[in-house]
Amino acid sequence: MWGDSLLIVFISICTAFLGEGLTWVLVYRTEKYQKLKVEVERQSKKLEKRKEAHGDSLDKQHKKKIEREEERLKNNNRDLSLVKMKSMFAIGFAFTALLSMFNSIFDGRVVAKLPFHPISWIQGLSHRNLPGDNYTDCSFIFLYILCTMSIRQNIQKLLGFAPSRAASKQGGALFTTPPPQFK
């Protein structure tokens, strides 16, 4: 059982590197992406600073400037996600295939023992396709998801591919209400 769980950790490390490698080949190294990323980061920081400086002032000119910059940032953010999107789809398909392959390899096998009883809505995942009703038995998919959650993001951060905080904070406003001029 221990061999299986270690193998799963190894698999998720490999797939994380593979995923990042593929994304690097398809997205990160392209000039368009790099240009857009630098631009978005610069604008997000600038906007944040400006908001900090004139956040509460009612000066119309400042407000207009901030709005205009927000608009530009939003457009750049949208372009950035478009650049990412195509290859993300390709990688997503490849990984779904890989996942289903591993799923069938580990089907019905207890790969680890949980040191706690998972709550009911997790049990469907942690006890997927496992015989018996000992809910401390752990299925492949649960351990794999946990590994991916921790390993993938840390690898992204280590390699410097994770989006900067300022950009993701500003980018979070992408799907909120449209600015006044569109109303």
Binding site: W2, S5, K113, L114, P115, N134, C138, L146
Partner: peptide, 16 residues
């Protein structure tokens, strides 16, 4: 992940 793996390796055969 670390908790589960160490626990499985050392005490996996015991029941909870």
């Amino acid at each position: 992940v670390t908790w589960i793996i160490i626990y499985t390796g050392l005490h996996g055969s015991e029941s909870l």
